[in-house]
Design a protein around this nucleic acid. Structure first.
Length: 283
DNA sequence: ATGGTGGGATACCCA
């Protein structure tokens, strides 16, 4: 890091559980941490009621896929997002606002630069495709909502396979509502088979990994037991009864560009906190 | 023990 001279990109995903209830907390965190790209989930508002001006004042462009009451996702970016897509392909009947995707032209990350002996020119900028994804929670494994979650994850894998073929950097970030492995939950024995820690969900997560997507936090911290979400109920935060269910999934070439990755649990301790925390990486 | 807390909405809702 100390030898790095070029431009660094900081990217973050955060399920904020209502942009209106969380605005002061979010603005404070954004000012202190200055992410270049911020993927938000559960904004729980229509686009017209999103605090676009507040974020524009801080230098962000806002790409929104909002909805009344539930769901709602956004991409905030210092570099303009282009080619915005607001539906995950595969089900025209799905009206829930859980997906937004955009292409962002960023200064070429240091580690993405071709070596001089294979390329005479180094591109100044590269295309980074990002998605902000709110995977359905699934309620309980025997519910219709769980079946919807399974179908959503299948559609996500099919779409990811297409995106991985493009000549772009790629990060699919969001609230996946899946803890991938035992290390990602506070009590694996107790939770096994329950929502967000069910083998059928984990199988879908493995499919994404088999397609080539890399769980950036886990790749950077192979042994660390850390969480991105704590239930509001039962003093989960106080007892550290959490789960790691928010992820930044990167293409292999993008993962090669990662400098650092982390999860910031500072915002969870504040009053009026979201139940999720920011998950970030730098390129 | 089948709760609990917090959001947005007024739905026995969703997480």
């Amino acid at each position: 890091m100390e030898n790095y001279a070029g431009t660094m990109i900081k990217l973050c995903t955060w399920n904020v559980n209502s942009i209106k209830a969380r605005l002061p907390n979010i603005l404070e965190w954004v000012q202190a941490n200055t992410p270049d790209i911020l993927l938000l989930q559960e904004i729980k508002t229509i686009n017209d009621a999103f605090p676009t001006l507040e974020f524009e004042d801080m230098g962000y462009n806002c790409a929104l896929n909002g909805q009344k009451t539930y769901n709602g996702v956004a991409i905030l970016s210092r570099y303009p997002p282009e080619d915005i897509i607001t539906a995950l392909p595969g089900d025209p009947e799905d009206t829930q606002a859980r997906y937004i995707e955009a292409v962002i032209s960023i200064p070429t990350p240091e580690y993405a630069r071709p070596a001089a002996y294979v390329s005479a020119t180094i591109p100044e900028r590269m295309a980074l495709r990002v998605a902000s994804i709110y995977v359905p929670n699934g309620q309980s494994p025997d519910s219709d909502k769980f079946a919807y979650k399974m179908r959503f994850l299948e559609r996500l894998a099919i779409h990811a396979k297409t995106l991985l073929e493009y000549d772009e950097l790629l990060i699919l970030g969001g609230d996946y509502n899946i803890a991938p492995a035992d290390i990602d939950v506070w009590d694996a024995k107790k939770l096994r088979g329950s929502t967000c820690f069910h083998p059928d969900e984990q199988r879908h997560f493995r499919v994404l990994e088999q397609l080539g997507l890399i769980d950036i936090y886990r790749a950077s911290h192979p042994e660390t037991q850390a969480y991105s979400w704590w239930d509001y109920r039962g003093g989960s935060w106080e007892h550290n009864h959490g789960m790691r269910i928010d992820h930044l999934m990167a293409s292999p070439r993008t993962a090669d560009c990662i400098r650092e990755a982390g999860m910031d649990d500072g915002p969870r301790a504040k009053s009026k906190a979201s139940d999720h925390i920011p998950v970030w990486c730098t390129l």
